[in-house]
Design a protein around this nucleic acid. Sequence first.
DNA 1: ATGCTCCTGCGAA
DNA 2: CTAACGTTCGCAGGAGCAT
Length: 439
Amino acid sequence: MSTSASLTRAIALVDGNNFYVSCERVFNPGLEKSPLVILSNNDGCIVSRSQEARDLGIPMGLPFFKAKQLIQSHGLKWLSSNYTLYGDMSARMMNTLAQFSPDQEIYSIDECFLDLTGITSDSQLISYGLTIKERVQRDLGLPTCVGIGPSKTLAKLANHIAKKNKQFGGAFAWAALSQQEQIEWLKKVNVAEVWGVGRRLLEQLNTIGIKTVYDLQQANTDLIRRRFSIVLARTVAELNGVACLEMVDIKEPINKQQIISSKSFGEPIQALPLLREAVASYVCRAAEKLREQASVCHNVTVFVRTNPFAKHQPQYHNQISIPLSIGTADSRRLIHAACYGLERIYRSNYVYKKAGIILSDLHDAYHHQGDLFTKIDEEKSQQVMRTIDNLNLRYGANTLTLASTGIVVGNPHSWRMRANQKSQCFTTRWDEIALAKAC
DNA sequence: ATGCTCCTGCGAA
DNA sequence: CTAACGTTCGCAGGAGCAT
């Protein structure tokens, strides 16, 4: 029996301020105050910008070479991305944040939702948000902003407003505002900032006169449903305070439905043997993840492509899927399938820039079928793979690899990623801390 | 008509 | 020196096929 009307939900979205930049600055205070950017894989694009870098007009995703002149003229500093460091800092931040709610959903490396429903009253929400922010700053040295709303979409939007408007001190809650004030904010923010509205959708919304968040909030749900999709219709409901998107339970991690490993090459390659090595190493990485989640794979896709930006060069891209009648998590079998596929789509007269593999049609290894003979083989295979995984876990990635991924001792292959300016793994590797001191 | 699988587009970080 | 442009995931919905 319920005696009270159901509580309006209060969802917080905590998000790191330029997270990668902030992680680097924690361990290297010399990076404070100057414009700083962090680059994507292969040192290709800018994926994190300090405020100073934003002020120089550097947009998100800019190819790095287009910003290089700013190094001279404005003292722009840059670093390759150090995912080991960011991943570890993220785990620590999430631990701290978990203490503020029994219901946490880790949404990405630098943000999580916290369900605050019933923990605080409307009037306390802002101060609770500020407390969260201060605590992360104190424990980890990482700046964040907190947005709070009755739905995830409004929490996201609140976070955006907190980030862009310093006067709030880093925490913004819809519940703290009058209805009139809420409308004013919705009218002030571009619809492009709404969670789920990307480049294409923005274009279409603009053509029918929807420019601000308010316009979208007021839009007719049926029209949105017909003209666009159920997804955007849900977004409209969420903007009206009707929570449609539930918190995802992260304590029961859901196995992935597909595992992708693909990378651009440090230098383009043409020769099949080199492509084989690259593909084999990508398969190895993906197969590790496959075994981590205790799945087997029934389908391996391999794809290759030339550089689409090199307009003067002949272009080619192709992919092929190899079904496996008997599911497996054995790197060797998966490599075999991938290389078979590679040979089918390889054309010798092109210069390749990128290759990748997709493991799909994944199933729980425990339930997976097999006859008596395959089962014996399989036990052997699992022993070998477990041994390799354990060694690599204990002594570091790539301690033991398969020969097909290339013998690279002291002579890294040209196709391997560029990362010319990576910081040390301060939180996970003693040897690299020592190195930092020596420098 | 209805139900499937496969594939593509889109958005997110 | 030049040229140089990320990765991984899930979801929705249309196309194409089978029933």
